[in-house]
Amino acid sequence: MLTSILRSPLAAPQQLHIPDGFLSAPVAILAWIVTMAFIVAAVRRSSQTFDERLVPLMGVLAAFIFAAQAFNFPVAGGTSGHFLGGALAAILLGPWPALLVMTAVIGLQGLIFQDGGLLAMGANIFVMGIVTVWTGYFGYQALQRVNRYAAGFTAGWLSVVLAAVVTAFMLALSGTASLGVVLTAMAGVHMLIGVGEGLITAAALALVKAALPGMFGEQVTGRKSDAGTIIAGGVVLALVVGIVAVFFASPSPDGLERVAEDKGFIEAAQAAPFEIIPDYVAPGIANETLAGVLAVVLGTLLLFAVGYGIARALRRRNHRLAETPVEVDQ
């Protein structure tokens, strides 16, 4: 009975946690290798920024993200909006500490609550830590000058949608699902869920700005993106593109194992960009998948525009919220 209390609403199921068994061994292991490289870099860089305060600060903030994921709000038809937190953490703390925080959250959820697998944990950290953090960070940086809250909304929305897209590709690469269907389903659902994430991120930013005006902006996000952060962002982008490219390099999208058997993984990865075109004209599944991908890209752009418009419209409201004195201890 005690476990059930703890499970709900605290361990509310997160839609993106991949359990073990759904990823093939090569996909899961590759994801672990990439993730470990990022974690080691994050540890090194965060240690420099926060020196001896690092562990207590990151630990308490990781507990914050875990607890904040319990917050939900009713949307419609019995579904509810949840909060993932990667983008907000990246905006408030910078990408490297945010990655540490998200890694701790996902690690504990997998180890203690069996929320997400152990072998699949590398992939889960890649999707919900690395992808959300860097999308959130650069999404916010790009639009910050236009409007802070529109930037927060966009960052939150994009982080969730891109995470869902990457998850769909990983599942398809593992031969667990057919790309066209899983991509449409995952991206579609998370374009809606992402609106909740975006609104929560923007509103949370407004409150933090009101409660801690001195800390916000200058010290926390005012740090210029340095070379390492930008390179890491480029690596994330290249990986996402790479996952997509490897997929299309395979004549019949039947899992990474097939690619590995046919050509050896490295060769396939290198050949990928040149093989996209021939595969496009191949009949059958390739065309179907292409249509799915095109639909998703167009849909993403469209919803991006709509979301941006909504955020602009909400701008005045957020300003009003920001001006209201905030009672931190209620």
């Binding site: 917050f71 907000l88 509103a203 949370a204």
Partner: peptide
């Protein structure tokens, strides 16, 4: 409106956690 309330709660919890 509901999403904004939850956002406020998240922000408030962040400030307290810090």
């Amino acid at each position: 409106w509901r999403a904004r309330i939850v956002g406020g709660m998240v922000g408030s919890l962040f400030v307290r956690s810090l």
